[in-house]
Design a protein around this nucleic acid. Structure first.
Lengths: 264, 264
DNA sequence: CGAATAGTGTCTCTCAGACAATATTGC
DNA sequence: GCAATATTGTCTGAGAGACACTATTCG
């Protein structure tokens, strides 16, 4: 993570002592968190609801609107650290404790007019988490909660968070294809059916349980069997085997959601 | 691109009139350009050299070191616009003129100590360009030139540009798999062999010309035949057909560089 | 003609998708 | 037993990789 040690030449040190940083245009820098999860269906039988954590803003600008949780980066704070801090504030979860939680930077959004207060560049972070306890509103929010992504009205989020969310969803859907990150939406131990419901919820498509089973158990490094069965569900049926996340970071071959051989 | 029109409530307008933006920590924001191309081999027979445009800095900090071209974003300038401006300055090429040139944001780099002057967040852009005329040094650089990526000494670039370049290379290699962007490294009209040399240079692997030909010509939307042959090369041989970029934005099925069915 | 490069045909193996069949539970 | 879910097996077709073979040019 840290960059190389560098011998700073004396003339550069001298130059730096006289350098005036106020000559450059000052920007605000924020982090926003696109925290995604898959929450069980009401009945518990369906594929689950792909949901995002939103807050209702209690301060200007966009007071009263829904928004992604976020905030300004501190002067000496790393971007990733700011995102994790915001995550802890909103959810009382720190990624270090939950090894399943996945955090990944999503890019930078910096349209000049995106914040009415001043020039602000936002660096959103994409987070995959298993179904977690209900969040509690923090100091500056009226309300916090999970919203199924298909219930988020286009154009109703504060700032440019519609675009940020859209970018996060697209990235999440793509990541499930070639990484084992679907398991980041599952608890520590999970069944193949749990994992399949994640794919179905995120992609919005039904998958054949039999082919899915053969596929994921046959992909090296994806799943590690626990050797113990899960408790039987409410509808009865043969108990499923439990698995944990395997060591793989990419999937070979990938899980393909789409369109093999379709025209453009 | 532009966000929704929003009715700004009167109380927010009033609040905004009294808002003091100097309360937040000021950051500098820069763009850096990871401009990649594939330049012909010395002999013209090999796969070509995958190269990046680097500048030698003529100002502090890191004076005398190699770096990616970049600079501060102007107060009212969009991030993408700043990257394009920097590109034009360095290469006298504007992406609009060259429809082949591909520009894509690569993320945000913001370690607190990455710039000794002040807190700076950099937003690098990845650019794919065909082999272009030699660039000319601008005002603040001693030297500009193409450097084959394998000749870039690890740890020798200014700031954290090693990490930025590494991220750009990884992204470029991945993009060639599932998008038709390899053609962005080719001139307007090109042969299948030209395209294959791009893949070989970027991935650093040899590809079977016969399977490659069948693959790319059979992928819908990838290539559009011009209906005219290219001039015969120096070594003789049957003249190759010319193609242009097709309308596809993603490839189905993807070009796979790697490892089908290999263990993790 | 021979060398060189372009392009096609064929074979095999892997893998995705469809779906039959078997296994194991609760009722 | 019956319903429900889990897991395995079998078949088919698409496509990747190996590589023989044909096509077209230059010298």
């Amino acid at each position: 993570m840290s960059s190389r040690r560098r011998e700073v030449p004396e003339d550069e040190r001298a130059w730096l002592r006289t350098y005036d940083p106020t000559g450059f245009a000052p920007f605000g820098v924020t982090v926003d968190v696109v925290l995604l999860t898959v929450r069980p269906d009401e009945a518990g039988t369906g594929p689950g609801r792909f949901s995002v954590l939103l807050v209702e803003r209690d301060t200007h600008p966009f007071r009263g609107d829904l928004a992604l949780p976020g905030g300004f980066v501190q002067p000496a704070e790393d971007l990733d650290a700011a995102a994790v801090r915001r995550l802890e504030q909103e959810l009382r979860v720190r990624p270090g404790d939950h090894p399943g939680v996945h955090v990944e930077q999503l890019g930078a959004f910096g349209r000049p007019e995106r914040d009415p207060r001043m020039r602000v560049v936002s660096v959103p972070y994409l987070v995959f988490a298993p179904d977690l306890p209900a969040p509690v509103p923090g100091g500056r929010t009226r309300w916090v909660g999970w919203v199924p992504v298909e219930d988020v009205d286009a154009g109703r989020l504060a700032f440019d968070h519609d675009q940020v969310l859209a970018a996060g969803l697209e990235r999440a859907r793509a990541k499930l294809e070639y990484t084992p990150l679907a398991a980041a939406f599952c608890p520590d131990e999970f069944t193949v059916a749990d994992l399949r419901k994640v794919y179905e919820a995120v992609w919005g498509t039904a998958l054949d349980p039999r082919n899915f089973h053969r596929k994921v158990t046959g992909t090296p490094g994806f799943l590690v069997p626990v050797g113990r069965p899960a408790p039987v569900g409410p509808g009865g049926g043969r108990p499923a085997a439990l698995f944990r996340r395997g060591p793989a970071t990419t999937l070979h071959p990938a899980m393909l959601r789409a369109a093999r051989g379709r025209p453009t």
